[in-house]
Amino acid sequence: MATEAATKTVAMPQLDFSTYVNQFFWLLVTLVVIYFVVTRLVIPRIGGVLADRKSTIERDIAAAEELKQKAISAEAAYNQALADARSEAARIVEAARAEIKKDLDEATSRADAEIMAKSAESEKRIAAIRDSALESVTQVAHETAAEIVAVMGGSADAEAVSAAVAARLKG
């Protein structure tokens, strides 16, 4: 047995070509098994976890980005709404001012008309006064003159007084 083992023991077992076919066969079997383990189990499992992790982070970041965009547009909408409200308010104030001005103008013109009417009326009254002036002047002057003459001790009949007054009125 010892001699047999000795003959079988080559100086370098690596160069014992009688074992090569066996080694090739089992190496190929092993490689195929490892390949199937790797592709069926290892890559789906570990690759899946790594991809999950990466996609979780990326999804979070992407969601954050999207939310940020939404926030920006929400802010813009908010500011827009405020600006709209302000311009609406300005418009209302402007409209109110126009309304007031219109009212003012109307009231002013009405007042003007009233004043004009009143002054016209007074003009008429003054004219009437002036129209009635001659008559009343004649009458008053007549009475007054007669009284004066009487006070002064003159005698003056109505006729003479009237004549004198008429003469003075003309003069």
Binding site: N22, W26, V33, I34, V37, L41
Partner: peptide, 26 residues
Amino acid sequence: EVHWYTITNQTLWMAIGICCILLLLV
């Protein structure tokens, strides 16, 4: 005799290698 199909000490350690792969990576 080492035939092409013979299970040898080398075969054993390749199989143990597969087991280690399963243990660590699976």
